[in-house]
Design a protein around this nucleic acid. Structure first.
Length: 423
RNA sequence: GAGCCCAUAGCUCAGUAGGUUAGAGCGCCAGGUUGUGGCCCUGGAGGCCGUGGGUUCAAAUCCCAUUGGGCUCCCCA
């Protein structure tokens, strides 16, 4: 490439027309499912106050400590949102949605930004869809969220997945567990990896997440959070599992599942696919009963999930699951000569008004080249116009799939088109 | 932040004991069919071999640097 050209930033891609059809398909499927579940779409700005993200997600998380795209203008600090739960929670508080009565059901689809090194299934601008159910601590709310997520994958046909769940407890349970973990790891502190040693004080639960070889033997026998849940958390978790089973949603309990963001409490879950390579999480979520208070609202329990669109596509690609059909064209008007072109420019509108897609050549190609173009664009029909057709007012109506054609007045062609496309 | 791999035509890639005008398939354009697509045949366009420097009589090929890309660790969607 010449050095005089430009290209997208590292980890950011263009989505061209042949790909955008897949996005439309998925987005439509997600929106339709949201309608069935009666979740309302929320669209929040891409830029959020840096402080919201930092407080909401947690200063010590990787996202906040090193992955934010942020800048300031004057006194104001902006950040490109790295995820959408904190922004949705912000909107909930800002617009007093708690005054609307009942729990709020919100979903979103949109781009998120994290300044990481890109690799397969991980980009700096990526897309998530997700949902939040805000204003209830009932276990059935957790199940409603998980059902919604699973239903989308079910509709797509991506069923080769594993739903892992866990409970990370409330602050009381977590404090007990934290002590237990520190007591457990303390004697072996010197044998742990550097990273785990750093986490020992800050957040010992994250040690369980370690993939370092040397940590594995210690992690294997570490105490489990589920043994330290208090009465309330334990009951909540049991209910969630029971309702999931009743709903026919298979899951695997993973007592070592911890989520990367600080705001999670109680239920945590992750949807895994083995067809994704090293970034195997399709999506994840959980309960975050402390977030809204943390960002300035009244204490409000909530639960939600977020899934990666690109990872979803990678998994479908790997499994040969089609995402919509290739876009096709209904009619291509092939014309020869200026008179024919003028005719086409008028009639093309008539055809489009029938709700059919119609195009023509704009670069003066030969008839042969125009038909080739029509074929390439997968056009169902072609109308061929030249001097003789104009003279007789009968136009060549060609069925591209069957290679048949007949000479008809324009009105009759419109009639045939309407019946062919069942308009 | 660390490691590994890669860079030749629009795309996928050949081309290293350094040696004339750098190749294929696909795609694109045109002709075979003076107004008819897909299949077939023929022809054509299109490359400063990522960029800069070095070694050499000679560099796509060897060396150094640089830029861009991919994958992996960390972590996550």
């Amino acid at each position: 490439m010449s050095q005089n050209t430009f290209q997208t930033h590292h980890g950011m891609v263009d989505i061209l027309p042949e790909e955008s059809g897949k996005w439309h398909y998925l987005e439509a499927l997600i929106r339709e499912t949201a309608r069935e579940f009666h979740f309302g779409e929320i669209r929040t700005p891409v830029l959020e106050p840096t402080e919201l993200i930092a407080r909401g997600i947690g200063q010590l998380t990787d996202i906040v400590s090193k992955e934010m795209f942020s800048f300031s203008r004057g006194e104001t600090n902006y950040v490109l949102r790295p995820e959408c739960t904190a922004p949705v929670a912000r909107a909930y508080v800002q617009h007093h949605l708690d005054q609307k009565g009942g729990a709020q059901k919100l979903f979103y689809i949109g781009p998120m930004f994290r300044a990481e090194r890109p690799q397969k299934g991980r980009q700096r601008q990526f897309h998530q869809f997700g949902a939040e159910l805000i204003g209830t601590d009932a276990p059935i709310a957790d199940v409603e969220i998980i059902r919604f997520m699973m239903r989308i994958y079910e509709k797509i046909g991506l069923t080769k997945t594993t739903l892992m769940i866990n409970s990370v407890g409330d602050p009381e349970s977590r404090a007990d567990y934290r002590n237990a973990l520190q007591e457990y790891f303390r004697p072996n502190l010197n044998n742990l990896s550097d990273i785990s040693r750093q986490r020992f004080e800050a957040n010992p639960m994250r040690i369980l997440d370690s993939k370092e070889e040397e940590d594995q033997p210690f992690i294997e026998n570490a105490p489990l959070i589920t043994d330290y849940l208090n009465e309330a958390c334990s009951r909540h978790y049991a209910h969630v599992k029971q309702y999931l089973t009743d709903s026919g949603i298979p899951f695997v309990e993973n007592p070592r599942l911890v989520r990367g963001l600080d705001y999670y409490t109680q239920t945590a879950f992750e949807l895994i696919s083995s067809d994704l390579g090293s970034q195997d999480a399709l999506g994840g979520g959980g309960r975050y009963d402390l977030l809204i208070e943390e960002i300035g609202g009244r204490p409000t329990p909530a639960v939600g999930f977020a899934c990666g669109m690109e990872r979803l596509m990678i998994a479908c690609e790997a499994l040969g699951i089609p995402l919509g059909e290739a876009p096709s064209l209904d009619v291509y008007i092939v014309c020869r000569g200026e008179g024919a072109q003028r005719w086409a420019m008028d009639r093309i509108t008539d055809i489009r008004k029938q709700g059919l897609s119609c195009t023509m050549d704009f670069s003066g190609k030969s008839i042969k080249a125009q038909l080739k173009d029509a074929n390439r664009q997968n056009s169902r029909f072609a109308i061929i116009v030249g001097d003789s057709e104009l003279e007789q007012q009968k136009f060549t109506f060609r069925n591209m799939q069957e290679s048949t054609e007949e000479a008809l007045p324009f009105d009759e062609i419109v009639g045939k088109l309407n019946s062919a496309f069942d308009k």
